[in-house]
Amino acid sequence: MNDHSPSDIEFCNVIKCYGDIQAVGSLNFAVKRGSFHSFLGGSGCGKTTTLRMIAGFEQPTRGEVKLAGKSVAGVPAYQRPVNMVFQHYALFPHLTVAQNIAYGLRYRTPRPDKHTQLRLADEALEMVRLSGFGQRKPSELSGGQQQRVALARALVNKPTVLLLDEPLAALDRKLRKEMQSELLRLQREVGITFVLVTHDQEEALSMSDSISVMRDGAIIQTATPEQLYEAPATRYVADFIGEANLFDGTVRRLQGNSVVLRTAQGLELTSPLTPTGQSLSADALGCIAVRPELVSIAAGEATMAREVTLQGCVEDRIYLGNSTEYRVRTQAFGLVCVRVPRQQDHGANAFEHGAAVRVGWDHANGLAMAL
């Protein structure tokens, strides 16, 4: 992010401890105003604790949290310019949809009258495309509609930042995709900062302007979705973001902007350094990652014009609809994953379990990085 870009959220050396357990440590980051930012990581990585400190449900043990440029040290949740949408929508079952949405307006200062509250609730319903649903009860709505009501309730107060704590986790895949598009549309229309916590990398990649990948209470890398996929900082990021064939080894030498890595099997691979792999040096431990869609596959007797070629046999063939994934057992590198587009995987080009095949890629298809 440009240093001159205004930030709606800023963490300065933030540490959060629960007794002797450090949940997050020395977090320093900023979220650009009006952007869609995601915290991505596995369970226990610290992403929800980070979100709760933004919301005010938790206070940092040390360090400073700023919202819209102002420190919020000691400011309770209800006085912060943020709203949160939870995984479980927490709608009041005895209230109508309109009453649920208007509930938070009661605590505004000055408090709007009832007529204004209902008008604002109707406007929020129109924003999430649920006009005419105001008099229904939550039990009369589908899961996706309840999700939209929860969003409307959070947006009606016009917060500076909207926090989303895995809000799509309970939805089926098709509805989740629809709601991802809906969230993107809403974020662009209202123009406020959205912050999403998720363990679903596809969800984060498809919606975010920027993503922070977290592990063990620390941010490993913050970048755009494209940068995370195409230039991961570490082996962990390469493995967590998308699929990757990972070849660990020791750096033999650096050649310009490339690295030569000797694997545990004694074979040498060459690959360009990613921008974050510039710290690699001779004799250091490193990794080369090759994405499955960049690996070619052909019959075992076929010639292949690729710089790295390996013999193997098909151990698994997984049909994914728009592509087919092959897991090929090679003597040199163990399992190598190959992903073939649907239009290329048919007839004589399809391989069954046990088929002898050749897989390969060019040096330029690899990504060299630190472990």
Score class of each variant (00 low, 15 high):
113 D>K: 02
119 R>F: 00
206 S>C: 08
107 Y>K: 08
128 V>H: 05
227 Q>C: 13
154 A>P: 01
135 Q>C: 06
124 A>K: 08
216 D>V: 07
142 S>T: 14
215 R>A: 15
120 L>Q: 14
148 R>T: 03
231 A>S: 12
219 I>P: 11
151 L>Q: 01
225 P>F: 00
171 L>C: 09
94 H>W: 03
186 L>E: 05
125 L>R: 13
204 A>D: 11
201 Q>M: 10
164 L>F: 05
136 R>T: 06
129 R>A: 15
152 A>C: 12
216 D>I: 03
227 Q>Y: 13
136 R>Y: 11
191 G>E: 03
113 D>F: 01
224 T>Q: 10
239 D>P: 15
121 A>T: 11
141 L>E: 04
111 R>A: 15
218 A>L: 12
230 E>K: 11
113 D>Y: 00
149 V>H: 05
134 G>T: 09
195 V>N: 02
110 P>Q: 11
228 L>V: 10
231 A>Y: 07
223 A>H: 03
227 Q>S: 14
183 L>D: 09
115 H>P: 00
150 A>G: 10
224 T>W: 11
175 L>C: 04
152 A>Y: 01
137 K>N: 09
174 K>H: 14
239 D>F: 03
133 F>Y: 15
113 D>P: 06
192 I>T: 15
218 A>G: 14
185 R>Y: 09
232 P>M: 02
148 R>K: 13
179 M>A: 12
132 G>H: 00
217 G>D: 02
163 L>Q: 02
232 P>W: 05
168 L>E: 04
153 R>V: 00
123 E>N: 05
183 L>W: 09
157 N>S: 14
128 V>L: 01
182 E>R: 02
207 M>D: 07
139 S>P: 06
180 Q>H: 05
228 L>F: 11
212 S>C: 09
145 Q>R: 02
158 K>R: 13
156 V>F: 07
159 P>Q: 03
222 T>M: 08
117 Q>S: 07
177 K>N: 06
116 T>H: 04
225 P>A: 07
103 Y>N: 15
133 F>T: 07
211 I>K: 08
220 I>Q: 15
102 A>G: 06
181 S>W: 03
236 Y>S: 07
210 S>I: 12
218 A>V: 09
120 L>M: 03
156 V>Y: 02
190 V>E: 00
230 E>S: 12
96 T>W: 12
142 S>F: 06
231 A>M: 12
153 R>D: 04
141 L>C: 13
191 G>N: 04
163 L>H: 09
135 Q>L: 09
198 T>G: 11
207 M>N: 06
221 Q>D: 08
127 M>Y: 05
96 T>S: 15
176 R>A: 11
215 R>V: 15
189 E>H: 10
119 R>Y: 00
123 E>W: 00
239 D>N: 15
155 L>N: 03
168 L>S: 02
207 M>G: 06
152 A>P: 05
97 V>W: 05
192 I>E: 03
229 Y>D: 15
99 Q>V: 08
132 G>N: 06
170 A>H: 08
158 K>P: 04
94 H>Y: 11
202 E>P: 01
183 L>C: 10
225 P>M: 10
103 Y>W: 13
153 R>N: 04
136 R>K: 15
193 T>Q: 04
213 V>N: 00
147 Q>W: 01
177 K>H: 13
172 D>A: 14
194 F>R: 02
